[in-house]
Computed example of a mutant assay.
Amino acid sequence: MLLHIDSSADPTADSVTRRLTAHFARAWQERHGVTDYRHRDLTTTPVPPLTGAYTTLGRRVEREGFVPPAKVPALVESPAEAREWELTLPLITELAAADTVVLGIPMYNFSVPAALKAWIDRVTFPGAFAHPDTGESLLADTRVVAVMARGGAYGPDTGRESLDFQTPYLKAWSGRLGIRPDHLHLVVAELTRVDVLPQLAGREAAAAASLAAARARLVALAAA
């Protein structure tokens, strides 16, 4: 299954990440079919931020060791905890069912959007993706295609690489879930605000090349 997640606050076609994730999804469906596909828009259907009841339930689950999601309700002790689990379980189930996940991630203030962070916080529930007997990750074979768009440039030759908090964060988070490093694909389109930021004038060709390279890589990844 392909799980397609958009997190851009811009719901229109002006969003570069939405255009790119849609490009990947179309290419994927051409190869794999249109039925085994799920789209989640974190802007039109936001994931609620965590509450104290979530963290309390999470700590209780951690003390029990590797508890599979099916056994979590037995550890729920209040209506507030039950509500948090009700909000969380569908997201965990959806991610567990996916063979490939494509994430649309615009850079907001050097990092990921709050809408995506809320989803990440919920699905990263203690033990949700750990095998109950071995503790090994159930997501070891899951592919994650992270599609990032940045208004400026943050590559190694820009002097701004240290301001890129998307890449290290996504690597750390996916690794924490047990997704293999070779299954995390970071696809970046840079200089996407070249049309509106005066300081980027003259870099139109570089922006177009970055976008074209991102599109081409997504087609290749969809076909893999």
Rank of each mutant, 00 (worst) to 15 (best):
L2I: 11
D6W: 01
S8Y: 03
A9I: 12
A9Y: 11
D14W: 08
V16H: 12
R19I: 02
T21F: 01
T21H: 04
T21E: 02
A22H: 10
A25F: 07
H32A: 07
H32F: 10
V34G: 13
V34H: 13
R38A: 12
D41K: 03
T43A: 15
P46I: 15
V47N: 12
V47I: 14
P48A: 14
L50N: 10
T51Q: 07
G52V: 00
G52R: 02
A53W: 06
T55S: 03
G58E: 00
R59N: 04
R59M: 06
R60Q: 04
V61F: 00
R63S: 08
G65S: 02
P68Y: 01
K71V: 11
K71D: 15
P73D: 08
L75A: 03
E77L: 05
E77A: 10
E77R: 09
S78V: 08
R83C: 03
E86V: 00
T88W: 04
L89Q: 14
L89R: 14
L89Y: 12
L89K: 12
L89H: 13
P90W: 08
P90D: 12
L91N: 07
L91M: 10
I92H: 06
I92N: 09
I92D: 09
A98V: 01
D99A: 14
D99R: 15
V101L: 10
V101G: 06
L103W: 02
P106V: 05
P106R: 02
A115K: 07
K117Y: 10
A118N: 12
W119M: 03
I120P: 00
F125V: 05
P126V: 15
A128C: 09
A128I: 07
S137Q: 06
S137W: 07
A140R: 15
T142Y: 04
T142S: 05
V144F: 07
M148T: 15
A149Y: 02
R150E: 10
R150C: 13
G151D: 11
D157S: 11
T158V: 14
E161A: 15
D164P: 05
F165T: 01
Q166L: 11
L170M: 14
L170Q: 13
A172T: 11
S174I: 08
S174P: 04
R176I: 00
R176P: 00
R176V: 03
G178L: 06
I179G: 00
I179C: 00
I179L: 00
I179D: 02
P181M: 15
P181N: 11
L186P: 01
A189E: 05
E190N: 03
L191H: 12
T192E: 03
V194M: 13
R203F: 09
E204Y: 11
A205F: 05
A207N: 02
A207E: 01
A209G: 06
R215I: 02
A216M: 02
A220W: 11
L221G: 06
L221P: 07
A222R: 01
A222P: 02
A223C: 08
A223F: 10
A224G: 12
